[in-house]
Amino acid sequence: MSTMNYWAREWELQEDICPCDVHFNQWIADRGLRDKTIYHFGTGSHHVVGREQAINGSNNAVFAITASIEEYQAYIELVAENSRINKNYVVYFGDIYLTNAKLLPEFDVVTMFHLREFFHPNTSSEEYGGITDRGVLDVFTARTRSAGYILFYTGSLGFARATPIIAEWEQANPVERIGEFKTLRIYRKR
């Protein structure tokens, strides 16, 4: 058995470096999205997406993944201090490349902000059992409801490497690019 690939650091909110989570919350407000289920790839120790959606009255529910022990600990402390946030925001610690589609509900909105940032040389090996970035996109596209949204962060450290994967995915899946919002590229599932 191999150990899980994880990120041995945490990400504090740095709007000047990585504004995607703030822009995502602004996009949701701009669209007036309410009562939606959201999958969020990469929480940061700030948990700004989950925290905002849990307290803004939208009744949106966020299910998020972090591969950082420190970010997961920050989540535990956040909900231990404010139980109401836990009602609409749940974080799990794991490697997105080990996602099992059978364990996922359907989502109205999916963020793929950190695609190609955390893939390791052993990720898709038989021993580790992970899937590729394209596999991640396919799993979450299948779990996105019709007319749901899939968003990417154009300022991501992995975006240049993800661009050809996104182009291939766009051609092979029932999705259409519907626009941009600040640093976000937005697709809609047909």
Score class of each variant (00 low, 15 high):
residue 164 P to S: 08
residue 31 R to S: 09
residue 129 G to A: 06
residue 183 T to W: 02
residue 161 R to G: 06
residue 50 G to P: 08
residue 27 W to F: 12
residue 168 E to S: 11
residue 128 Y to N: 05
residue 117 E to W: 00
residue 69 I to Q: 14
residue 84 R to P: 05
residue 152 F to S: 02
residue 142 A to Y: 10
residue 22 V to L: 09
residue 161 R to V: 01
residue 15 E to D: 09
residue 80 A to H: 13
residue 109 V to C: 08
residue 162 A to N: 08
residue 59 N to M: 10
residue 34 R to P: 00
residue 138 D to M: 09
residue 142 A to H: 12
residue 36 K to P: 00
residue 7 W to S: 06
residue 143 R to G: 01
residue 45 S to T: 08
residue 5 N to S: 09
residue 50 G to V: 06
residue 35 D to E: 13
residue 35 D to N: 13
residue 15 E to C: 04
residue 128 Y to C: 06
residue 189 K to Q: 08
residue 147 A to N: 12
residue 174 P to Y: 01
residue 155 G to R: 11
residue 139 V to F: 07
residue 143 R to N: 07
residue 42 G to D: 03
residue 9 R to D: 10
residue 113 F to H: 04
residue 24 F to L: 09
residue 185 R to N: 08
residue 42 G to N: 02
residue 140 F to G: 00
residue 146 S to N: 12
residue 25 N to K: 06
residue 125 S to F: 10
residue 172 A to Y: 07
residue 94 G to E: 12
residue 107 F to R: 00
residue 73 Q to F: 08
residue 148 G to F: 01
residue 78 L to R: 11
residue 25 N to R: 10
residue 188 R to H: 04
residue 112 M to E: 14
residue 157 L to I: 05
residue 16 D to R: 13
residue 40 H to I: 00
residue 50 G to H: 05
residue 98 L to K: 15
residue 27 W to H: 09
residue 159 F to V: 05
residue 16 D to P: 00
residue 24 F to C: 03
residue 61 A to S: 11
residue 28 I to A: 08
residue 142 A to Q: 14
residue 115 L to W: 01
residue 38 I to C: 03
residue 174 P to N: 13
residue 100 N to F: 05
residue 114 H to V: 07
residue 93 F to S: 06
residue 20 C to I: 03
residue 130 G to I: 02
residue 112 M to Y: 00
residue 158 G to K: 03
residue 67 A to G: 11
residue 182 K to W: 06
residue 173 N to F: 03
residue 52 E to N: 11
residue 190 R to H: 12
residue 112 M to D: 05
residue 64 A to V: 04
residue 175 V to S: 03
residue 151 L to R: 01
residue 81 E to K: 15
residue 116 R to F: 00
residue 24 F to Q: 02
residue 174 P to W: 00
residue 171 Q to C: 06
residue 66 T to Q: 04
residue 77 E to G: 05
residue 119 F to I: 14
residue 82 N to A: 12
residue 158 G to F: 04
residue 67 A to P: 04
residue 152 F to E: 04
residue 1 M to Y: 10
residue 119 F to N: 01
residue 125 S to K: 10
residue 171 Q to M: 10
residue 146 S to E: 15
residue 31 R to L: 09
residue 122 N to K: 15
residue 26 Q to T: 06
residue 122 N to G: 09
residue 14 Q to C: 07
residue 170 E to A: 09
residue 59 N to K: 15
residue 92 Y to H: 15
residue 124 S to P: 00
residue 156 S to F: 04
residue 133 D to E: 12
residue 7 W to T: 06
residue 70 E to F: 13
residue 110 V to H: 01
residue 123 T to V: 07
residue 174 P to F: 04
residue 51 R to V: 06
residue 58 S to F: 09
residue 20 C to L: 03
residue 75 Y to S: 05
residue 101 A to I: 13
residue 108 D to C: 04
residue 86 N to E: 15
residue 125 S to W: 10
residue 51 R to S: 11
residue 26 Q to H: 10
residue 49 V to I: 10
